[in-house]
Simulated scan of single mutants.
Amino acid sequence: MIRLAEATKAVFRHRRPEPWCWAVVVEAACDGTHTSRDADQAVSQAGPAVSAHADLIAESLGRGSVYRDNVLALALAGMGDVRALPALRRLADDNRLPGDRPRVRILAALPAAELLPVVRPALRREPERTALLELLALWGPAAAPAVPEVMRILDTPYAYDALRALGRIGPPAAVAADRLAAYATGRDPGAGRPHTRLAAWAHWKVTGDPTLALDVCAAAVRSGTASHGLPFHADLGPLAAAHADPVLRMTESAGAWTRVAAAHAYWRITGDPAPAIPVLLAEVDPAWTGSPAMPVREAVHRLGEMGAPAGSAASLLRGLLAQEERLSRPFAGVRILADQAYVRTLTEALERIAPGDEAAPLRRWWK
């Protein structure tokens, strides 16, 4: 037990623990007689870090409790291993699919076509499972068969997440265009200000017609609430050129999230990275612990989208990738998931900003 405690502490704390640590933790999670919830939590979040143990994990499925199957199925899903599917089907039959967004996002590594027959009945039974809508949004157009279920949720208190999923599905969700237009114009009884903005964006994504989205963005600028629509300005890009100046002014906002969103939107609208890069770099705090109140990961992601013009960020990103300890203050219970997501963002940003071999050694250890 002492060895397991040491190993579990190491995998939660370090990005690159000694290989024996993961071996011990996986063995414990696969052994139905142990009682280490920490080991279970670690394995369910590990993803590619435990790919060397995928066979043991797959062989252990169905040999223990429903709880253990949930742990092991998530571990396989995080590797994109389809051997997780039978267990996930059993879990769905028992209404035991993961219900929180961080763990549901793990499932996005599996093929949508294989998992949609599991997800669609779950949405019909429990429309309040909005984390599953997040999964559809991540799958994008591949989630098109679930459009009927998503459209039904427009009539529930969970419409906001349904609107987002429809927009991410895009043109395959064109059957929802009229309903989205009703939300965007306020004609739908369920429409409110956040719904209006999101519905207008979704209408553009499914129809290709930006008219409603541009109208909503213009209304937000006129009313002084444009900061809430900055992601939509960014998506519209040059189509939102009339709003470039107010967006640029928002890069001096008192709120860090607004500054980052405004910098990104200004670059997308104008193609000019010069005003945006200093704003984004200022938010990349080397001492960040993972607090969701700070948009550090978002700033890194946006710098990566800019590519070579953000070359001044390269040395900072390399230093962040070289750090040994994981983020310590993400949302409770998902430390490994949050840190892996940050590492992916850092690595992908660095590879786009400074393509070549420099990031390759760093990339290998999290894949």
Rank of each mutant, 00 (worst) to 15 (best):
A310I: 05
W267K: 04
R259W: 07
A274V: 09
R15E: 04
R83Y: 01
S328V: 04
C217Y: 07
G229L: 14
L239F: 04
H228V: 07
A87S: 15
P111M: 10
L107S: 05
R152T: 08
D215E: 15
V25P: 01
E305L: 11
L337W: 03
A58E: 02
A23D: 14
P189F: 14
A293F: 09
T35G: 08
G333N: 04
W204Q: 02
P246E: 03
A142E: 15
L116C: 04
H195R: 15
H195E: 13
I106Y: 07
A287Y: 05
A52C: 03
E348A: 13
L248E: 04
D94K: 15
P48W: 04
A191K: 10
P86H: 05
L337H: 02
L198D: 10
P194C: 09
I169V: 12
P111K: 03
L280P: 03
H233V: 15
G62S: 03
G192C: 13
W201Q: 03
A184M: 06
A5C: 05
L110F: 02
V119N: 02
A112M: 04
N70Y: 05
A244L: 12
P121A: 06
H301L: 08
A181L: 13
L133G: 09
H301F: 06
R318I: 07
A265K: 02
P141R: 15
A58H: 00
L132E: 04
A263Q: 06
A42L: 02
D209V: 11
H53V: 00
R83N: 09
L214G: 08
E358G: 09
P148K: 12
M151C: 12
Q41S: 08
A143Y: 00
P189G: 11
V206C: 12
P172T: 01
V104A: 11
G255Y: 10
P117G: 08
L214M: 14
L97C: 02
A220I: 05
R13W: 08
A46D: 01
A262E: 02
L72F: 00
E126Y: 12
D178P: 10
R318Q: 05
P194W: 10
V296F: 01
E18P: 13
L74E: 01
D31M: 02
V206L: 13
E27Y: 01
L97V: 00
K205H: 11
L248G: 04
P141Q: 13
A23G: 13
A23L: 08
L91K: 03
A314S: 10
G356I: 11
W366H: 13
E114I: 03
A213F: 09
G32F: 01
D357Y: 06
A226H: 14
C30D: 00
E283Q: 15
V247I: 15
A184N: 08
Y158I: 13
R168F: 07
A360P: 11
W257I: 08
E358Y: 09
V247H: 01
E358S: 15
A314M: 06
I336Q: 08
Y160P: 12
P246Q: 07
L350D: 07
V82A: 08
F232P: 01
V26H: 00
P275T: 02
R101M: 05
V50W: 00
P17C: 11
W257C: 03
A200G: 13
P292V: 06
